[in-house]
Amino acid sequence: MRVTERYINGVVLTGLLVLPIWALAMDEPFTITLATRAVVLALAAVGLNLALGLGGMVSLGHAAFFGLGGYTMGILAYHAQTYSTLNLGLFSTDGTTSMPLIWLSAMVISALVAFFIGMLSLRTTGVYFIMITLAFGQMFFYFAISWAQYGGEDGLSIYVRNGFPGLNTLVPIQFFGICFTLLCIVLFLFARLQASPFGLALNATRQTRSRVQAVGLNPTRIRLLAFVLSGAITGLAGALFADLNRFVSPTMFSWQLSGELIVLIVIGGVGRLMGPVIGACVFVALEHFLGALTDYWHVYLGVVLLCIVLFGRGGLIGLLTGKEGAHV
């Protein structure tokens, strides 16, 4: 069974890599952009999968980190491109258009905010946790709407994509390559973490907190760290998403986006390495093909989701391997 899941993982990653290369040969840049969109959403969902799939933390506020990553990129690039200074009180910066620096900032800021949100929300579980994370997400949403300096409700356009040393990021296939590489690195780290002692403990906190305490481990600290890592990954995805669209807006903070990330994971398979990747591919494909036919394509997404939840609780991976996900 494990071999089968591995096989699926290999096929999906290879397919995701081959598609844009094929599109490049066929001169279809839009397909490359679609593939990049799937990769970036997958990355965001891999972040959430760490909290939700491994740690059982159903966060309905992960858009907060996605948006923070996006706005980190937007604000840093805005200042760099307008040659204005960003004054942060303790220190000031002229902004930057260097992707690695933006990624680092996005991850650090998301991690710090995740630490803060986690400290407060991880005292609760179940519905209360969902509600608290949702509330934090909405706080950021309304804050972004009212932040006139950076576009408020209209969002912030960044006219030139940020740079990566040695690459021309405006060439779609090169930007895809960057995103795909990051996704692969994060997936690799995710798999290592899942099998590690920390992953074992995290997995146990999802199943029974009292058992974890009885063996001398502090479940809240384990969950908090997972939540922070999760937020950092989703924040990184947010920065890439903003660079993909060259545009940031409060919709990146919307609770619908948090919900979509959960949907991606459920479609692919909760807690499974490639669950979010498969979910993101299905999501972007439906969005593109059905979205061309009808504005109400979400209805069909709903049908897909319903079928998966009813007939294959391990998501698509569970359906294909015949091995049900053990949880959620």
Binding site: R192, S196, P197, G199
Partner: peptide, 9 residues
């Protein structure tokens, strides 16, 4: 070992 992230348990 609970804070070990590398290497399979």
């Amino acid at each position: 070992a609970s804070w070990r992230f590398w290497g399979a348990a």
